[in-house]
Each structure stands twice: as C-alpha cells, then as structure tokens.
C-alpha cells in the first residue's frame, strides 16, 4: 500500500510553552508499505529512505515495541496512538489504514510535555509526580511474609487495573485541557485498593495532586477522551477515586501540632 504522511518536524527543543512556531508539518510519500508492518516499522522504512537521501530522519521515542514500556506514542490523525482502541503506537499495524491514506503524525501536545525534537517529547513531569508520593514508604529489608495480609481478590484486581498504566502520556495528549488526571488517578487507585498502600493514603493524595498542579497540567472537565485513548484502557473511575481521596484527605487534615512531640526518650 501507499500512504502520505504529514509529520511534525522540529529540529530544536521548544523553549516556551507556545511552541507552534518551533516546527512545521512536512509531507512525505511512502510506497510499498506492508499491511503487516507496525506503525513504527513503517516510520523505520521512512527513516531508512530519508537517511539514504541525506535528509535528517524523523526522531521518535520507542523501545520495547510490544506495548508495555510506554516509550512510544504519537498523535495519529488527531488521536494519540491512532485509531485502534487499547493499542500503543508500536502495536498499531498498517492494516488499520487504507491504501492511499493521508496520515497526520504529531507529537503529544501539552505545555507540561515540551517537544525535544520532531515527535519526541519530554515527559519527565510524570516522573516528578511519581517522586512526590506514588509509592509505599518501605525500605528494602525484611518485611513480613507476603501472605501475612490477605488482600481480597476484587481489591487486588482493581489495584492491578490501575497499576497497568505504562506512563505513555496519551491521556494528557488526548485531553483538550492536557490534564494528567488519568495518570495520577491511576497511581492513587493502585495504592488505594491495597492495604499496604492505605497507610499513607491522605499524604499521597495531597502530594500527588500538588505535584500534578505544579507541573502545569490542565484540569479534568470529564470529557473522558483520556479513557478512550489509554492503551491499557484504564477507566476514568480512577479519577473519581482520586477526587474522593483528595477531598477526604483535605477534610481530615489537621493543622500541624504546636505541641512538642517526643523527646530524648
């Protein structure tokens, strides 16, 4: 098959939030595309041709190419990861497009994800959110036996559903407000449904939301585009859970005590 690609080309890192001027859409014709190719393999073929012609190949993030590392992801015809539901860009195959299709390929667009080059964006904001509290504060050591705390299967399954998040950022890219609430909600939900995670639930909810806000992500207006494009099909239920946890944490929060605590004991 033959396709026409319109790809965002940008040679340097965006320096300001409004980076519309930093690059432009460039059209490429690509022939002999096999329906069995993955979308990224199709880009590989394009890059081989560009390199041979002496043109700079298109930069895009990718690594595992089996849908789990979360590195890859481009917006294809306005939809992050393209037209197939529950699929990462690396697992999208060209059989999903018709012969002669015109395909628009753009990077994630969000102020919190500045473009580094072409289709490569900086998603370190996600890491910083996780660093603020998406963990259980246990050190490596000798915790109790793994079976000491039974976890109802339904809870474990819910935690798992949220924990499958691959951190690709498609939720942010799809959101008209570039909100990261599906991502952050998934972290809250993962730990909320496990007894190990409940110990720090209030602090976690407060810190994650504060970190998310500080990164400049937008706000959720309940349009649920994030859910539609999430390659792991994480439900918007996790956002509701985060909202609840945050409100709850704010309601139960006490001002810091002025009494002296502890002592030399």
């Amino acid at each position: 098959m033959k396709v026409t690609l319109h790809i965002w080309r940008q040679s340097k890192k965006s320096t300001k939030a409004d980076f519309a001027q930093d690059g432009k859409m460039v059209a490429y014709e690509l022939e002999h595309v096999s329906a069995d190719m993955s979308f990224l393999e199709m880009l590989d073929v394009l890059n081989e041709q560009l390199t041979k012609k002496g043109e700079d190949p298109v930069a895009f993030d990718h690594d595992c190419r089996e849908g789990v590392c979360g590195s890859c992801g481009v917006v294809i015809d306005g939809v992050p990861h393209g037209p197939e539901r529950g699929t990462t860009t690396c697992q999208l195959h060209m059989r999903s497009f018709r012969d002669g299709a015109s395909i628009y390929v753009e990077p994630w667009r969000a102020a919190a994800f500045p473009v580094l080059k072409d289709l490569v964006v900086d998603r370190s904001a996600f890491d910083r959110v996780v660093q603020s509290g998406a963990f259980v504060s246990v050190n490596t050591g000798a915790p109790q036996d793994a079976n000491a705390i039974p976890v109802p299967k339904a809870d474990a399954d819910r935690a798992f559903d949220a924990a499958t998040c691959i951190g690709c950022g498609a939720c942010v890219a799809a959101c008209k407000n570039a909100s990261a609430m599906l991502f952050v909600g998934a972290k809250v939900s993962h730990f909320l449904h496990l007894p190990q995670g409940r110990v720090e639930r209030e602090q976690r909810a407060r810190r994650l939301v504060a970190a998310m806000d500080a990164e400049g992500f937008g706000n959720c207006t309940n349009q649920y585009e994030c859910e539609a494009v999430c390659p792991k099909e994480i439900p918007v239920r996790v956002i509701a859970e985060m909202n609840r946890e945050f409100v709850r944490s704010k309601l139960v929060e006490e001002p810091p005590s002025t009494k002296r605590v502890g002592g030399d004991g």
Binding site: G141, N147, K153
Partner: peptide, 22 residues
Amino acid sequence: VNIIDQAVAQGVPFARDYGGLL
C-alpha cells in the same frame, strides 16, 4: 523468598486467589 515479601510490601499487585492469598 525475600523478594516476594519485599514486592508485596511495596504494593506490587500479584495475582491472588479468592482467599486473598498469593
């Protein structure tokens, strides 16, 4: 043996049976 204990303490959601055990 310790790895499983450590991972569970960190909140790794391993598969469980209906009794809640791993």
